[in-house]
């Protein structure tokens, strides 16, 4: 009889153990709680905001850009994709990406990310040589030669410089005072600076800049359409998208 009591006691102990394991394994949350808990507030990147004292002017430029994208860039892009096959487009994209090396290098050095700076240098060397002047992304095969892309505005953010305020540039779209200053810094090291600064110096550089911009459009335009078509307020959607994106970059 005693042995049976022992068996029963052992069974009860095992049941208790199983019950406790089950409870630990099932950390459920109620759907209602999930809807009510405002844990978005704990997510710094998602909650990043930006001052927009010139919202009226910015909205007007956003409206102008939107009309240009939809009525000029989009039809043009359809034709461009039809005329220029995918591979040459990809090659051109790689070429311009490779030319952005000095900006990324400066962004890394300003953040004291010397490991990533050397990875960027390795990537540039491999793509310039084995990648035939950058037209092929030969470095993509090497895990250590694909660091996250850094820029000078991002470096300023890491130093603690705040956005300042939101700016929508004609044609170029969203930026902030901080990131605009970063872009100006980038012009010093960029082999193909902003076109408007170089009109007098070299028309070739302007042509290259236009080719770079046009070549990237097919990749951007569909996503841009999805964001604006599905938005309640496309201006706020793009402004917040930009702010969260940059906050994420600075956090990296």
């Amino acid at each position: 009889m005693i042995s049976h009591i022992r068996v029963a006691a052992a069974t009860a102990s095992i049941l208790a153990l199983v019950a406790s394991v089950s409870l630990q394994a099932q950390d459920f949350i109620d759907a209602d709680d999930l809807m009510e808990i405002d844990d978005l507030l704990d997510d710094e990147t998602s909650n990043e905001t930006i001052a927009d004292p010139f919202e009226d002017i910015n909205r007007a430029i956003f409206g102008f850009n939107n009309a240009v994208y939809k009525n000029v860039f989009q039809p043009f892009t359809r034709q461009y994709v039809r005329i220029v096959p995918k591979e040459p487009r990809k090659g051109l994209s790689n070429f311009f990406d490779n030319l952005g090396y000095p900006i990324r290098l400066t962004g890394n050095v300003l953040q004291f990310k010397f490991g990533r700076a050397s990875q960027e240098t390795g990537r540039f060397l491999v793509n310039t040589t084995a990648g035939l002047a950058g037209f092929m992304d030969a470095a993509k095969e090497f895990e250590n030669l694909n660091p996250p892309k850094e820029d000078i505005g991002q470096a300023l953010g890491v130093w603690g410089v705040k956005h300042g305020f939101y700016i929508v540039l004609p044609f170029a779209g969203p930026t902030s005072l901080r990131d605009f200053v970063g872009r100006l810094g980038g012009r010093v090291v960029d082999p193909i600076p902003e076109p408007w600064s170089q009109l007098d110096e070299s028309e070739d550089r302007l042509d290259l800049q236009i080719v770079d911009t046009v070549n990237d459009l097919p990749e951007i335009i569909d996503l841009y359409n999805s964001i604006t078509d599905s938005a309640i307020d496309p201006y706020i959607a793009v402004r917040d998208g930009y702010t969260q994106l940059r906050a994420g970059k600075v956090k990296e």
Binding site: F28, I29, D30, A31, L34, L40, D43, T45, S46, N47, T49, A231, I232, D233, I236, A237, D240, G241, Q244, L245, G248
Partner: peptide, 25 residues
């Protein structure tokens, strides 16, 4: 989620939270 199991409650595109983006709109 209780009675539902593992369920998506937010999607981040390039680190941009869609829920947060719509919340601001």
């Amino acid at each position: 989620i209780k009675d539902r199991g593992w369920q998506v409650y937010d999607v981040l595109v390039e680190n941009v939270s869609m829920v947060s983006n719509y919340r601001k709109q």
